[in-house]
């Protein structure tokens, strides 16, 4: 099966509330695709539609070119984790994985393999009700991996994990993508996807705001900006402004310069003998890029609400 997810023109309303408003994007193999947006943007609904759990008024979602509900052993094609706490607490982690394995024609050996892969072997025979949220997330990931699927759909998998767990999850998601799988990971925090996602689909109000590669996104957001560290702030601002740059104060001794290259900044400061300790190309964080990108949408929405 081709490792892709294809979401096309999904529309869904709950009474007067529009949950999905033409949601369209594709998820490519071999990459971690972040699915980002504020709570209520339609991320979880979209994921449920992909998994054939929720119906839509219009549009369709395909995995490997097929409807999820037509798959014979769906977990062998698509592994998913929607809610790590969606298990019966009195059952052991191992038995939870066991009934799932049986549903795909798999046995207990596979259960022990995936438990080991997520580092849960020592706790697997304990009741899942006693697991921390981080352990439940690992159990959920183990369940998603049972059928060794080419496609993974994970809803907020690092939610509730401690820093060590988050670091583990990042590396793990990267390795799954490196194996050629298509990995769709949702988050309401862009920063959670830093160093994890190769591509992001940013959504708001049930539709896609941006569908872009992370490298490209950061490059655009970083722009032609230069960070300058100097004790002679006023003097530097005068010199650079004269040369046509836009200068913004971003700290007690730092300035962000737009419109001039780093070399030009160094040359100008040298001519006027303005002291400085550092000149560097500004690199935006994913969060910053996200803010830049969604600012317009947010303003538009705020205006819409005010009406």
């Amino acid at each position: 099966m081709e490792a892709t997810i294809e979401v096309s023109g999904l529309r869904k309303r709950y009474g007067p509330t529009v949950a999905l408003d033409g949601m369209t994007f594709t998820v490519a193999p071999g990459k971690v695709t972040g699915f980002v947006g504020p709570n209520g943007a339609g991320k979880s609904t979209t994921m449920r539609v992909i998994l054939g759990l929720d119906s839509v008024d219009e549009g369709h979602a395909l995995v490997g070119g097929r409807h999820y509900r037509s798959l014979r052993h769906p977990l062998r094609q698509v592994g998913s984790l929607l809610d790590a706490s969606a298990l019966q607490p009195s059952r052991t982690g191992r038995n939870h994985l066991l009934w799932l394995a049986h549903s795909q024609g798999l046995g207990a050996r596979r259960v022990d393999e995936v438990a080991e892969r997520v580092g849960l072997t020592s706790a697997i025979r304990r009741k899942a009700g006693g697991y921390s949220l981080g352990m439940r997330q690992r159990l959920g990931i183990a369940a998603a991996l049972l059928g060794d699927p080419p496609v993974l759909v994970l809803d907020e998998p690092v939610n509730g994990m401690d820093p060590e767990g988050i670091r583990w999850m990042r590396g793990f998601l990267r390795s799954l993508a490196a194996e050629g799988r298509a990995v769709l990971v949702s988050s309401h925090l862009m920063s959670e996807l830093q160093d994890t996602a190769d591509h992001v689909v940013i959504v708001g109000r049930g539709k896609v705001i941006a569908d872009v590669g992370v490298a490209e996104l950061i490059e655009t957001a970083s722009g032609e900006r230069v960070t300058l560290r100097t004790t002679a702030r006023t003097q530097a601002m005068t010199v650079l402004a004269r040369a046509g740059a836009t200068v913004a104060v971003t700290g007690t001794d730092t300035l962000t310069v737009t419109g001039l290259s780093g070399e030009r900044v160094v040359a100008l400061l040298g001519e006027d003998a303005v002291p400085f300790s550092e000149v560097s190309a500004h690199r935006a964080s994913l969060e910053e890029a996200y803010m830049d990108l969604t600012r317009d949408a947010v303003e538009f929405n705020a205006a819409g609400d005010a009406r």
């Binding site: 449920r48 998994l51 054939g52 759990l53 999820y68 509900r69 798959l71 769906p74 977990l75 998913s80 929607l82 809610d83 706490s85 969606a86 298990l87 019966q88 607490p89 799932l100 549903s103 795909q104 369940a143």
Partner: peptide, 18 residues
């Protein structure tokens, strides 16, 4: 009911869509 109260029913239907 035990599956609905925990949300596990979604895991069940993801594994067995019919």
């Amino acid at each position: 009911g035990g599956e609905y109260s925990t949300g596990m029913i979604r895991v069940t239907f993801a594994a067995v869509p019919r």
